[in-house]
Nucleic acid binder design. Structure first.
Lengths: 197, 197
DNA sequence: TTGCTTTCCTAGGGGTACTAGGATATTCCT
DNA sequence: AGGAATATCCTAGTACCCCTAGGAAAGCAA
């Protein structure tokens, strides 16, 4: 009887694929083990717990997403970069719904695991880089980064949750949303004085 | 032995409270039953399944949230209304994290249940109403509604997921985000011609 | 009071996460 | 190559979970 040849990576990918195919909630130790032709107890050699596996799936997705965005925005600037960035984000969420959903889970990832995964930080850095052309200075830059990330994430999350029941297609709203964000970034309002809260 | 006097509503509220206190993932039939001083099998008289209960918690939260927003925006217009609307949204997510998270779950609510719950639709209608003062016409109006809802939801979702690790406080970014959205709504870009996709 | 309805119970099947400890494949060292 | 060491995968078992079936008893109606 040969061994199955499992690794942390293979287990994580199996879990991620399962999440995309049948939903994140169906990603159980038993199901992942079954898919790998192995007993569930065998997975604990490679993964500490189900929570640990979920965290690894989330970090895998963050890495993959940041890579997709980096490739899409390479060599672009201004609105070109903004549109490429946003479309890559949304495309990833559409193509890998289970993986993407895993990134949404309120954070409870082991710190030492998160430390060596560049995905989340890289994605934020890419957002800063993409905004370079708009000439914003801190702290407006950070606020703009957060606004963009919020809008991108919120849009695909509402889309996935069925929040856009209106007859107008989400795609049309998405295109116009990017138009609007571009216009906003080019005319970022100055900070009002007098209120520091 | 007196009866416990359960109803669908009491079970739903118990589940919602549990979600806020210990996390949505800890909302199990067993835990809810324990909290109500009852065996888990007894809950099935009032609720069809755990999925059903989760759906009811989500609809309860949507109702509550829309009520909070309606109260906060009553009698306000323009930026006042925008800020009140957004702050009520975010405050609800902060105060009732489990309930709010329940509203995010990709939709699988029984249609006949969703039909009689006004929450989700009401929230969208409130958003349209809040935008009345900005003078947008369809289809820009729908696009703006979707943009706003995406940004509000995305912001609190990223906030809850620990996505704002930077030193700048989320509160500051939130205030500036509202400034930016207000400016955007007052100068909504016209549709570009020539591309219908 | 007597029956009827509803609520809550006990009992139990099947699934899941996870641990302990044993067997076996693979590797490393001499 | 052979034997020791290591890592992988297994069986066995506990505890918790969802959910169903069927029975007891509380509340209600006549």
């Amino acid at each position: 009887m040969a061994r199955a040849g499992l690794t942390v990576e293979r287990v994580t990918v199996a879990g991620a694929d399962l999440a995309d195919e049948v939903g994140l909630g169906q990603v159980t130790m038993s199901q992942v083990a079954r898919r790998l032709g192995v007993r569930d107890a065998s997975l604990y050699t490679h993964v500490r717990s189900l929570k640990d596996l979920q965290g690894r799936i989330a970090l895998l997705a963050a890495d993959e997403k940041s890579i997709q965005i980096a490739e899409a925005t390479a060599g672009r600037a201004g609105k070109d970069a903004l549109v490429a960035f946003a479309n890559a984000w949304r495309a990833y969420a559409h193509r890998y719904p289970g993986r993407y959903l895993a990134t949404q889970t309120p954070i409870q990832i082991a710190p030492e695991l998160a430390a060596q995964a560049p995905g989340p930080r890289r994605a934020v850095e890419l957002t800063y880089g993409m905004l370079r052309g708009y000439g914003l200075a801190e702290p407006d830059l950070t606020d703009a980064v957060r606004l963009l990330r919020s809008t991108f994430h919120g849009f695909v999350a509402l889309e996935a949750a069925g929040g856009f029941a209106h007859e107008r297609s989400p795609q049309q709203s998405w295109v116009r949303t990017l138009d609007a964000l571009h216009a906003l970034l080019e005319h970022w309002p100055p900070a009002e004085e007098g209120h520091s809260s």
